[in-house]
Design a protein around this nucleic acid. Structure first.
Lengths: 338, 338
DNA sequence: ACAGACATTTCAAACGTTTGAAATAATTGA
DNA sequence: TCAATTATTTCAAACGTTTGAAATGTCTGT
């Protein structure tokens, strides 16, 4: 890379025949610097397109002004949208973000953590991999005084940590309530992998809505899938096994699962297929291309989750919140009727 | 943020009662350092979890080891997948990446460029916004000797620049050839916005395939849309206006457009609807949820595009390629039959 | 015992900023 | 006119590394 003479404070100082500190202070608008001097310096800086060297400033300030974000992947729109919130809030506050994908692989997560540790990020935002049960690779950060905020994925094995999570209980409650209000009495719940805490939180939202509305519940209305398509079909089969009294509505853990389910129900030409009303979590744009779109979606507001994670992290970085004063922030979901 | 005494070379040196430079050289495995000393230093460094301060190194080396990536958004799977290639190759080579989204807004693009300039990235990878026709906000980088590689979106107004592009001509040629081989003689082409150079490259691929196979062409087989749904429907209407001799196959600029098109054709109950064979660019996962999936997809290999962009950038950074020796790299597409 | 040859360690400057303290210049009042 | 005051500029150290040159230590052969 060609090294044209870099424009530094020293270079400006020589050009203007003054000391480096005067130039520095002039650019930082120190009150002790003469107005005319300031003007001269600032004009010269603009003319030569001076940009202060971040590495030098970071070294001086013992900061990197970089936030690390570790997440499973960017193909899932939830994460991609959450990044939008993080990025927005970070840049507004003078921070850049470095994103690292783990593809739900623990080894990669550890690698990412180590890399970001070396990069000396000022803070870390993490959506843990499905495999993560031990958090020692993140402990190093707190040892160095670098705050870590877990978001989206609940690190339920890790008691003392900062979390920003979607209020998935409330989201599932509202979805169920909506279906009840439309007259359904046989509402099925198709959950995600049982290891994920959200699966149970959503189930609780579902069951609470049923109870509060005195809708009877039976266990054949509930099934789980680990996202795999065949697995989903098995689950759906079990939900609709009772042909006398099949469910008339369905709440599904995630939209892709729901789409698989709908497709299957259609393929077997389930009698009341077009009467079944479905709701899934996600609110993805795919919906508009489907022949039988769900009646509503639970919008999880990922941008807001990301923004809240970044906001909390910033408060920790700025010592506005004690690092040991562990916070839990919940972001409400919103039911979107199509 | 709590500042525990930071572990620096100086700190290690004091602990070991030797000079800072010995410690530094021991850690960097200098041949002039005694083996036993090296071992002592390295053990102590490991024990105290010493990690060298990147800012200091960057300052010394006049590098940031950060690559800036400017792109329209991360909701489009093409970009998200391309990031995977960039990230992979960057981290393998000791670089971090900072991603900045422009949302196809020129003002945001300029803002991003300025921010990354201040961050003193070592190189820039850019997919320009739809609005970008002037490239002066990127000139600053080359003025500083920082290489810029344009990828995915062809900056056709910018003659002297490095580019990595998908071979969209070849992709469209193969798609058309495939349909011809299946016996189609009336193949329609639904293009994207006319301002985008890819629209024309793909058209050329289409028309060349027709010509080389002596398939007759008529202009009512071609229409354009700007991605807007209503616009797409208008385009489709014009393509299928000739009810005597309608197209039997369709090549579409992008899958979302194609999905809108299919949905529309189905809704009007086009007579031979289920016979029409379609191909779109993208190969998105949505396909599996559709009732009438396209027969094939043009896989654009975004990961490879990203990796190639990063590879080229690295060669420029390392002076393996002269910065004025402008490169153009084409990445082939692959037809995926479903 | 000592010059010469190596082996090993340390010095010191540099990267580009920031900032309190010290130095200098300009202005005021008596 | 000259000390006192205020305005302005400069000095110098620090942030944590790297690295060529200089210094020190150790060993060899005569």
């Amino acid at each position: 890379m060609k090294q044209n003479t870099p424009i530094t404070l020293k270079f400006l100082a020589e050009k203007l025949k003054m000391s480096v500190s005067t130039v520095s202070k002039a650019l930082n608008n120190y009150p002790t610097i003469n107005e005319y001097t300031k003007k001269r310096v600032q004009e010269m800086a603009k003319e030569l397109r001076f940009t202060p060297n971040k590495s030098a400033i970071n070294l001086k300030e013992r900061k990197s002004r970089i936030i690390g974000v570790i997440l499973p992947n960017l193909l899932d729109h939830f994460f991609t949208r959450s990044i939008y919130g993080v990025e927005q809030f970070a840049t507004e506050n003078g921070y850049n973000i470095i994103i690292s994908q783990t593809h739900d692989d623990l080894a990669k997560e550890i690698q990412s953590a180590n890399r970001l540790l070396k990069s000396r990020v000022d803070g870390l935002i993490v959506a843990i991999s499905k495999q993560t049960q031990n958090f020692s690779h993140f402990d190093q950060f707190e040892n160095m005084g670098t705050p870590v905020v877990y978001y989206t994925r609940n690190p339920s094995f890790n008691l003392n940590c900062h979390k920003v999570l979607g209020n998935t209980f409330q989201g599932c409650y509202e979805a169920t309530q909506f279906l009840i209000d439309r007259g359904h009495q046989r509402i099925a719940y198709l959950g995600g992998p049982k290891m994920i805490s959200f699966t149970h939180d959503r189930f609780n939202g579902y069951i609470n809505a049923l109870k509060n509305n005195h809708v009877s519940f039976s266990s054949d209305l509930v099934a789980y899938t680990d996202f795999d398509r065949d697995n989903t079909i098995t689950a759906i089969q079990s939900l609709f096994a009772n042909s006398e009294n099949p469910p008339t509505a369905l709440v599904a853990f995630k939209e892709p699962i729901l789409f698989d389910a709908i497709k299957y129900l259609k393929s077997i030409e389930h009698p009341n297929f077009d009467k079944i009303e479905c709701i899934g979590f996600g609110n993805t744009s795919v919906i508009s291309y489907l022949d039988f779109p769900p009646i509503a979606s639970v919008e999880e507001n990922p941008e807001s989750v990301g923004e809240n994670a970044m906001r909390l992290l910033l408060q920790l970085i700025n010592d506005e919140i004690e690092i040991q004063n562990y916070q839990k922030v919940m972001v409400d979901c919103k039911l979107v009727v199509h």
